[in-house]
């Protein structure tokens, strides 16, 4: 098994931490992993993306020519990456702010209103965590338990309340899941 995923969005939307947490979780589940971030020279704003490869064998290239999954949190990232998805792969998009329709017809598309859901839960910064719930529900790359444990470890010293609210956001995303084709 070799699965590659690209997470992409605005800098500050938390796309790198999504990938990092997933990679960390998959590693603790015993997989070979690579995590490859790419971001602009700016510290905030701009675009950011990362590639996570998960495999039960040694990973040759950490770069994804044709990723199995793509998660996009903003419209520019949709344009940049939708043509890269392998046929039969899946696209997860943040439908709260991405109004355009993807052009691909040979992939599965999951539209998740993750920003709205996060906002409704009181914190728009949890858009990424909501999305991650939906992503793992449909891909099963790692179990929710493994991901949440990894999240706690990555967040480390953060306040208990922040971890708790992220758990809730993840669960909301995991329970939402509406595929649109």
């Amino acid at each position: 098994m070799l699965v590659k995923t690209i997470f992409a969005g605005f800098g500050g939307q938390g796309v790198l931490i999504m990938g990092y947490t997933l990679a960390h979780g998959a590693m603790s589940a015993g997989y070979h992993v690579t995590f490859l971030p790419a971001y602009g020279a700016e510290v905030r704003g701009g675009t950011a993306n990362c590639t996570v490869a998960i495999s039960d064998d040694e990973i040759a290239s950490p770069i994804a020519s044709a990723p199995d999954y793509i998660v996009v949190l903003n419209t520019p990232s949709l344009y940049t990456f939708q043509n890269r998805i392998a046929p039969g792969g899946s696209l997860f998009l943040n439908s709260s702010i991405i109004a355009v329709e993807p052009s691909r017809r040979d992939i599965r598309i999951f539209k998740i209103p993750s920003a709205e859901m996060a906002e409704k839960m009181g914190n728009p910064r949890m858009t990424n965590t909501v999305m991650m719930g939906a992503f793992l529900k449909n891909t099963g790359l790692v179990t929710p338990d493994i991901y949440l444990a990894s999240m706690e470890e990555v967040m480390g010293s953060k306040k208990k309340s922040i971890i708790e609210i992220n758990r809730k956001a993840f669960t909301a995303g995991f329970e939402y899941s509406e595929e649109s084709t």
Binding site: A23, M27, H32, V33, T34, F35, L36, I59, P62
Partner: peptide, 9 residues
């Protein structure tokens, strides 16, 4: 830079 930023166990 890629080797520098990539994460692997």
């Amino acid at each position: 830079g890629m080797m520098g930023q990539m994460m692997e166990p």
